[in-house]
Design a protein around this nucleic acid. Sequence first.
DNA 1: GTTAGGG
DNA 2: CCCTAAC
Length: 683
Amino acid sequence: MVKRLDYGFRGFQVPPTAKRHRSTRRRGPFKKSAEDGQACAFELLASLAGELLQESESSASNNASEGNHHPSFSHTLVEKERQGEVRPLMAKGIHNGSCAESILFTEMESQKSNQKCLEHAETDCIVQCVSVNNNSNSECSEKVEAGLMSKNCKCRNKFVHHSNRLVEIPEDVRESSDANVKNGFRWEQVVSNSVFKGLPLGNKFCLKDPSELCVNSPSLINSNSNVKSPFCGDLLLNASISRHGNNNKLGFRDDDENFLRCNRVCTKSKAVRPPQRIARRRIRQLLTSKRWKVAPKLKDCEHSRTEFADGGVKPLYRKRKTCYSFERSRQCTLFKRRKFFGRSSVITSDGGFSWDSVSNSPDKGMDGDSSNSSIKRQASNDSHVKFSIKSFRIPELYIEVPRTSTVGSLKRAVKEAIMGMLRGGMHVGVLLQGKKVRGNNRTLRQTRISCEENLDKLGFVLEPSSLRASPAVCVGEPSQCKTPQLTRSPEARVLDSGISDALQDSSFLTNASNLVESNHESTSISTDTVVDKITTDARALVTVPTSSTKALAVIPAGQKTRHSELVQRRTRRPFSVSEVEGLVEAVEELGTGRWRDVKLRAFENADHRTYVDLKDKWKTLVHTAKIAPQQRRGEPVPQELLDRVLAAHDYWSHHQAKQHGLHGMHHQDGTMKDTVLIASNHI
DNA sequence: GTTAGGG
DNA sequence: CCCTAAC
């Protein structure tokens, strides 16, 4: 039986055209412009965002050109290695769950970390040891397996810790890899030629550049034993070792984020930190507390899948989750956007579809990113209003294709779906400020559509003439195609489809990266950026749970709508047990009123965890600890931890944790816990 | 910028 | 996770 992919096609836009132009307008802060009445705050915001992005892009290209002088990390490494400035010790990439993480060690750390690698790599772990003498592979292997790999273990092995087994990569593969270290991107080949072959492409995606993984460029230390490395090592070591140093296990387990971070530090020095990230930071700040980050956590999707599979997720919860997980799921944020941007009609809340920007002035061009003004009045002729519709999004499409079908057939399927929908006939609805404008015989003036202040509140809706006419394309054996659910309103489907959960399916990355054509940068730039790019270009593959299989919804939105996505909810990232452990530990010591300190202590390197997150997590932990185990959901937290949560909570709530200066006395090991136990016993 | 608490 | 008042 052929497995099928359902592609729910909820949006379709013409490809992005002009690059964002650098807006010369800056009319002041958001609030002020909003007060202008006519001035659209969002426009300003968008221009600014565009500007920031542009800056970052140019800065990025500058860095890229600098890269010519400073060859890639791996090249540099090889060079340094040859010059004896560094010597390889050991490097590991932990393939934990679905994403890779690379870690460098000092000599001192290596053994310990090695152990950790083996301990914590629950699924896959790539291990390479490179050392001085030339022990046999098997000897090294044994040591690795025993977790006793030391710096003196000398083999030149590449092992893949996969499914709890250490698998040695075939000799020929290794050799070819070694011989081509300088060429970069060999590890991917190694991986794909060995046991990782057949794993989801998302994995491969993570492992492309050996310099990112630091596998062929093992851990670096200066010959003077200084931890610092002349290039990336500095940052990298700081990042990884500090985590180990504070006995924080997060670093090993928090797969994707750490992977991203490591990638970042591995491939770029501090000085060339991805400007995109900086830009985004600034944008984030502009957007108050809104955060925008794209890093689908592959591990999460497994959980999501489980939740869907057992059907235990209540509709309401699922609905919320919808908003959590898929940052690119514009449907789930339509209402939010509307709320945020008020009058902006770039995306309307009730159509599930969009009407994009327009401009009459040629020089402004079709810049959807920075020009939100949908319609501009022709100055020369007040009796006419010009509408230039830049793109329509097709309301919703469902297609279903076998997993074995080709990209080409997918394209054809999409095309057929679109054509089918068009053949079925379309209505166009007009929305003014999100509300449907009724009465076909009323004039634009009567409906106030032509009012200048309304021009940017206008939207157009494409509606299939009949719901039945909504496209459903099936490629392959038609008998296996599911009948699309087209009897509900689009809104209803949007709301309860639970679409975004599945987004975290590993197929997201896989398919997204596959679909990105000519995304040349994606292998060498930081993964952060890669993901951004993917989601920008290919925008979102979402698995849609249908009756039995999950479908994929393709939302190829152009860059035009990117601005509106800046406000999307962050991806939901459930805390892992080890994270909880770190949190509990920190709170035990620091109390419940010092979340910033908690963050610094236990989550300093977990960029995606803010102290607010930690505070929130603590809140839910306390709640979880109080409810019956049957009522808990998600990854179960060990009861022992929950007990500690409760104990710490009780203790600190009776000890005015907020008082600074007290924390010093809690550094003694055990004291705190004993106290807590006593305290809780007395309650 | 942080913290606290409701949503 | 988000939002925001309060500090």
